[in-house]
């Protein structure tokens, strides 16, 4: 799944997520929150509910141990 603000898009490869919570913890602007839906392996992936707060720092991407989340700059 992915979610976009006018500047950034946060992409989550849900079936790779293992619900460790590191992305939620490291995000300086609290873009991500714990989700309630399970992926095919039974893990609840995070949701970028506050996507408009994203500053594009990529800490979630760099700290995700599962290659499950990445940030793109929205092209205008």
């Amino acid at each position: 799944m992915s979610a976009s603000s006018t500047k950034f898009r946060v992409n989550i490869i849900t079936n790779r997520c293992k619900e460790c919570g590191i992305c939620i913890g490291v995000c300086p602007t609290k873009v991500l929150v714990k989700g309630d839906k399970h992926n095919e392996h039974g893990f609840r992936y995070p949701l970028p509910v506050n996507i408009e707060r994203c500053i594009g720092c990529r800490l979630c991407e760099y700290n995700c141990p599962d290659f499950a989340i990445f940030v793109e700059v929205v092209k205008k």
Binding site: S2, K18, F67, E72
Partner: peptide, 23 residues
């Protein structure tokens, strides 16, 4: 939040044997 389906792949996927993920 506007949710859409994933359109691009992880920037490191080109260096990964993605068929073996999740690790």
């Amino acid at each position: 939040m506007v949710v859409s389906t994933l359109e691009s792949s992880h920037p490191l996927d080109k260096y990964l044997r993605t068929a073996r993920l999740p690790h």
